[in-house]
Amino acid sequence: MNPPPDLVVMPNDGAYPYDRITDYLDDRAIPYLILQEGIRFERAAGNLDGSSNAAAWAVWGNSSASYFRRQGAHPGRIHVTGSPRFDVLANETGSTEAKALADELSDGKPILALLSNPIDDLGFVTRSEKLALIRDLATASAPMLVERDWHMVIKLHGRESLEACSAAVGSAADGVPVSVVSDCPLYPLLGASRGALTFASSVGLEALLAGVPLAVVELPKHGFVHDYVSSGAAAGIRLNRALDQQIASWLEGSESREKAVGRYLDENVAHAGVSAVQVADLVQQLTHPPHKRSR
């Protein structure tokens, strides 16, 4: 890089290729900002985001700030900015877009969304185990979906195979009211959904922000990943138990869960609606510190 940039902004410093990029930048004394991209998974200190020599970390909320401190990030370099991607959430879950999407995907029927993510890439399960989980969930949901006249929409992450997932679901769930999609916009889908299921993804946080009841599907040998269930903000779904009863109890909700969701959002989402401004101000501070501006 000639001349070198004043600042490099990256989504993390622990996953490939960003771990290699941080080494390159460190060797050349080029400053960089880590802009938190997703939920954090607890691992040994020094092995994940927060272990590098970043000039600063822009994190979503107080919970993330605590996590990065545990990972070894310098406390004075951690800035709670919120997430710019959440700033637009309220505008994109509007009734017009949500209704149009529901009409397209389910002929206007109530939607139960399964928001998948590459848990196989994250090492929780193998690819075949993940496909089996999705297949079993669709199959177990069939009686409830038919009885309630609901439709399940399985939204895939960009790294997941539409063909493989469609084949897995279709092979065991003929006649089940389910659609598998990959390019469906997330926020209108949340606006059209009565509930959202996930495995281990930041879309769970977005569902809570959108006011959509959240449930986490138990993973073999790992239980309920992340802290959605342990915090009380989400229900836990076990595929080895009657699904209809679990879903009915989950969607009925409770005052205690509503309070837990409020506490969870307070800890995990800061500066809602103005996070982009917070990040821009931080970039300005890093590229034009006071001692430079005074010259």
Rank of each mutant, 00 (worst) to 15 (best):
I134H: 01
V277K: 15
P290V: 15
G72V: 12
A164L: 13
E104I: 01
M144L: 12
D266N: 08
K99W: 07
G232T: 06
R40E: 15
S166D: 05
F86N: 02
H74R: 01
I34F: 11
A54N: 07
V146G: 00
A65E: 11
G204E: 03
V229Q: 12
V153G: 07
L189Q: 05
Y32E: 01
M1Q: 12
R40Y: 13
G211T: 06
A138F: 01
D13W: 06
G108H: 09
L265V: 07
L162A: 03
E206R: 10
P289V: 10
Y18K: 03
D107P: 00
V9M: 10
A54I: 07
A113S: 15
G175H: 04
P84N: 07
V229A: 08
G253N: 05
L137C: 03
R257G: 08
S63L: 03
H226P: 00
A73L: 08
D227S: 06
G50V: 05
H151G: 06
F199L: 08
R20V: 10
D26P: 05
A55Q: 11
S51G: 10
D174V: 13
D103C: 08
D120S: 14
G108N: 10
E104R: 14
V225P: 03
E147S: 13
K99Y: 03
V279I: 11
V283Q: 15
H226Q: 09
E218Y: 04
A280G: 05
P11N: 02
L189P: 04
